[in-house]
Design a protein around this nucleic acid. Structure first.
Lengths: 173, 173
DNA sequence: GTAAAGTAAGTGAGTACTTACATATTAAAT
DNA sequence: ATTTAATATGTAAGTACTCACTTACTTTAC
């Protein structure tokens, strides 16, 4: 991985996340990365190859974030961690997640299943906590988290302390 | 409003909702509407004018949907109606809502405030129902509904009866 | 000295939009 | 009623430009 290659990747991530994949031209990426346009195609084959390289890199980060929640054994702590996901995601890897959320509307290639391990883990946690309907409870919170993360990534002003406290109270954590 | 004008609008709505605004060319719209490309510019000025015409038409439908919930006086019934919004929206005006949700990621022109009257109404309803934290309760359900509508519009298979019953039970309606 | 990394200058196809012209509709004048 | 003038509706063929991508060539690194 050369320096210019890294420049291309970071410029592309920023631009794709801000303005969208289709709306960002390869020449724009090249200029932002201070690189000739041809180099993008030498390294990544085509525009989609560049996108996939970004998604592959991000996928590893995503797994780290998820696994920290999923492998938590204490059910209350698991829910607690799940609730904090939106606010963590907004801080680190903001661009990657914004790209991810944009893509699920821009292309159909979105991995809707990436939520699933988390949903299963939450279902188990709610089971352990003797909730009446753990499956639906997990699906409910999943949609909520999806909506909340989306709002945060779009720049909605959200009082994270207020929201966190509200949720901790609601789920008696 | 001539017939060809209507053809342009319906073809554009379908294509913009399916493939996105930027990704749909004016020539594609013209072909789908069986119309010369120049006619689009005669009637709507430019591509963005066509989009705005669609959004204006949809806004009226949106107000109807919202007002049915907002002006409900019985708080329990209001929450009940709010909960059913995602499933109604998915049936009628599917394309318009899909376009709306796509746009809030594709452009920054999204009207995040269009939710607000609904949120205020829900806050009042939760107040009447003596909830401990009506404001946050309303924001919570807002994000949930946003996430759920998004999932439905993206084609996620959701058991609406199960979900509705779960929610009715959760909010004791 | 060979292979990888890099660039400049193209390529054809597609883009939003314009222009010049034709047809249809309406309204006024005779 | 019929002609005439004006206006709205429509089209075909362009415009300049941008797009993703290629080619021919040079520089760098081991």
């Amino acid at each position: 991985m050369t320096e210019k290659q890294e420049n291309i990747l970071s410029a592309a991530l920023k631009l794709f996340a801000e303005e969208g994949f289709s709306a960002t031209s390869t020449s724009k990426v090249a200029k932002a990365a201070s690189v000739s346009e041809g180099l993008i195609f030498r390294h990544f084959g085509n525009k989609e190859g560049l996108l996939n390289a970004l998604l592959d890199l991000g996928q590893e980060k995503a797994k780290l974030v998820y696994s920290n929640v999923i492998f938590e054994t204490d059910p209350k702590e698991l829910i607690r961690k799940a609730i904090q996901l939106p606010f963590n995601v907004a801080k680190e890897d903001h661009d990657f997640w914004r790209l991810q959320f944009k893509l699920k509307w821009e292309l159909n290639k979105y991995n809707e299943a990436s939520w699933e391990p988390l949903q299963v883990a939450m279902t188990n946690a709610f089971k352990k906590l003797k909730y009446k309907n753990p499956e639906m409870e997990a699906e409910y919170i999943k949609h909520f988290l999806d909506g909340l993360v989306g709002a945060i990534l779009r720049g909605s002003p959200i009082d994270d302390i207020k929201m966190t406290n509200f949720l901790l109270d609601k789920y008696q954590l």
